[in-house]
C-alpha cells in the first residue's frame, strides 16, 4: 500500500483533514471517509456523471480526480446545496417538473445543471441538452430534466412553498 498523504478539504462548509492514499478517488473520499453518500458512482469511465460535484464552484466528475488533488480546495456536493432546509431553485424545479424517477443520476444532474446555469444563465433547449451531455439518465428521456433547467433559469418554480421535506403539490403543467 502506498504511503498516505494528509489533505485538508472543505466539503459542504466543513473543513476536514485526513490521511489518504494517493490513489483514493475524490468520490471515494466523499462517500467512504466523509459519509457523503449523496454523491453516487455510476460508472468507471467518467461517462455517466452521477458523481458530479463542484470544486471551487465549478462542476467536476469526482471519479475523475484524486482526493489529494482536492487538497486546499472547496467541494460542494448535492448535500450542501439546500440551505436552512430551503431547496435551491434547481432542486425545486427538478421536483416540480418531474425531472427524476429512480433518482440515481439526480445529484450529478443537479450539480451539472447548476454549473451550466452559472456559465449561461439563459440557455436555449439545445444549449441545455449539450450542457448535460456528460450526464446520463436512463429513466426520464431527458425532456423533463431540460424543462427543469429551463424553469430554474426562467425563475418559474414556486418560490418558497417547497422545503427540504417537500410538501407535495400538484404540477402546474402535466
Amino acid at each position: 500500500m502506498a504511503r498516505s498523504t494528509t489533505i485538508t478539504v472543505e466539503v459542504d462548509d466543513v473543513s476536514y483533514t485526513d490521511d489518504v492514499e494517493p490513489r483514493l478517488l475524490l468520490v471515494q473520499y466523499l462517500r467512504e471517509r466523509l459519509g457523503k453518500t449523496g454523491t453516487l458512482i455510476g460508472c468507471d469511465t467518467t461517462n455517466c456523471g452521477a458523481c458530479t460535484v463542484h470544486l471551487d464552484g465549478t462542476s467536476v466528475k469526482s471519479c475523475t480526480m484524486f482526493a489529494v488533488q482536492a487538497d486546499g480546495r472547496r467541494v460542494t456536493t448535492i448535500e450542501g446545496l439546500a440551505r436552512d432546509g430551503k431547496l435551491t431553485p434547481l432542486q425545486r424545479a427538478f421536483h416540480e417538473c418531474h425531472a427524476l424517477q429512480c433518482g440515481f443520476c439526480t445529484p450529478g444532474m443537479i450539480m451539472q445543471s447548476a454549473s451550466l446555469l452559472q456559465e449561461n444563465p439563459h440557455p436555449s433547449e439545445q444549449e441545455i441538452r449539450e450542457g448535460l451531455e456528460g450526464n446520463l439518465c436512463r429513466c426520464t428521456g431527458y425532456q423533463n430534466i431540460v424543462a427543469a433547467v429551463q424553469a430554474a433559469a426562467d425563475g418559474t418554480t414556486t418560490s418558497d412553498s417547497a422545503t427540504e421535506n417537500g410538501a407535495s403539490e400538484t404540477a402546474g403543467v402535466a
Binding site: 454523491t39 432542486q91 417537500g166 400538484t170 402535466a174
Partner: peptide, 15 residues
C-alpha cells in the same frame, strides 16, 4: 398531476 412524494430525499442527497 401530484408531485412525487419520493423526490425530497433524492434531490437533497439523502438517498
Amino acid at each position: 398531476a401530484r408531485l412525487r412524494k419520493e423526490d425530497s430525499h433524492l434531490i437533497t442527497g439523502r438517498s
